[in-house]
Design a protein around this nucleic acid. Structure first.
Lengths: 240, 240
DNA sequence: AGCGTAGAGATTGTTCAACAATCCTGCAAG
DNA sequence: CTTGCAGGATTGTTGAACAATCTCTACGCT
């Protein structure tokens, strides 16, 4: 086995392998069950307000009740399910106050991340923006073939990667939760095109501002962007 | 039964009762076990890095393994425990990067809350600051009798109530988690007095600024406050 | 008819005991 | 010094059982 290569290169290699191992290991029946349920919920198969019966799901997912309940707990703490004591678990029904709450946090966190980039610009390695670019292009490609839910997913991933630039595990965790709840909101909206289309171009604009290192303007744009997005969802909500 | 009283008063009364019921109903065994463990951890009986054996704890807490594992999950999502697959649960060992990460988030959230108070000042009902005042006084009283851990608890509660002013359930949840992790950090620090004492007066100062509705200055003070606090913890950390 | 109540049936909350899968330890071999 | 292999201990998962609670229906009362 070659011991060659700079220390830096070797560590990066090891880290990559460690990540892969962690991803494989991440089995655990409960988490696998949670993955399936998470997708069902975020993709709208389980509508808000729906109850998840334990007995039915143990049969479908082929896990025991105890394991299933552990999966429920996982999703509960992500905000994708709510427990009602002695009555079961339900897909939460979010209302306008939740929209406002979610967007308030999104604005605080995302704008701060972008603003913070200015200070640590020098230490940002090249290629750090590549995931953002990929998301922008994925959204544009999906729009060309009228796959609006896919556009929405790509747009969300854009924001996830944007937060990722901060290198803060806790921000990543919070954002994951916030965006999961946001996805919940999207399903009560009838017109996904009107909802997502305007933000394809805005994401590209944001990306180009970041690439040009105009962080302050990017932060200002993002702030307005999120205000507009919030308004759009609130209107769709009131018109439902 | 009297139906008298203003609507406002009646609602407050109902809410109080509802809270009590919820507290009694509080789904029991798993959460009771979690409560005990939470206290053991936040009070330092279980040091960072310690492993929690399932068998031992089922005997001590007198619950089944499944229930205990549910309690573990609860605490895991509060950040007070970490799971290592097939190896067990451990009290997390936080390092300097975690301190920086935690304080970055605290600054973002708390400063934003205070700044946001300016806009919604008119709709803030009177007496909203009372919990903060109580916390300040509790800290001062505890300091007089040299109970520094109690001072730390009161100071934390001050920040919890500060965030509470935003009326954001999600911010409350995040703050709960952040402060729980912070408490974890305190136990690797040998000198609780030096750690907490300076912030008794600063909390009072902050409270008085809020009372005087000088929100902008309060926000600026809080920002510096959190920077100083972060620095203090980092120094204690490096000197350990 | 309207209202409150009792009871049956279904669902969730919790426990227990057992087995499977994985990790850690110590030791022997190369 | 590293590698490979038992053996023992711990965690992961299951299924069944029972208790507690909720929902719904049917009944009786005013």
């Amino acid at each position: 086995m070659s011991t060659g290569g700079a220390d830096e290169g070797r560590q990066a290699w090891l880290r990559t392998v460690a990540d892969d191992v962690a991803r494989l290991d991440r089995s655990s029946s409960a988490e696998r069950a949670a993955d399936i349920l998470r997708r069902s919920i975020t993709e709208g198969a389980l509508p808000p307000g729906a109850q998840l019966s334990e007995i039915e799901l143990t049969e479908v997912l082929e896990v025991s009740r105890n394991t299933l309940r552990e999966a429920f707990r996982l999703l509960t703490h992500e905000g994708l399910l709510v427990y009602k004591l002695h009555r079961g678990v339900f897909v939460p029904e979010l209302d306008e106050r939740d929209v406002i709450d979610l967007y308030r946090l999104r604005r605080v966190l995302e704008v701060d991340v972008v603003r913070g980039l200015a200070e640590r610009d020098p230490e940002l390695p090249a290629g750090r923006l590549e995931p953002l670019q990929a998301d922008v292009e994925a959204a544009e490609a999906a729009a060309l073939v009228d796959r609006w839910p896919a556009v929405g997913t790509a747009n969300m991933r854009f924001h996830e990667h944007l937060i990722g630039l901060a290198d803060s595990t806790r921000m990543d965790a919070m954002t994951g939760r916030l965006l999961a709840e946001l996805r919940l909101l999207f399903h009560v909206i009838a017109t996904p095109r009107e909802l997502h289309e305007p933000y394809i171009a805005r994401n590209r604009g944001l990306f180009e501002l970041l690439e040009a290192r105009k962080y302050e303007q990017a932060a200002a744009d993002l702030h307005q962007y999120l205000l507009d997005s919030e308004q759009g969802i609130l209107e769709a909500f009131r018109a439902r």
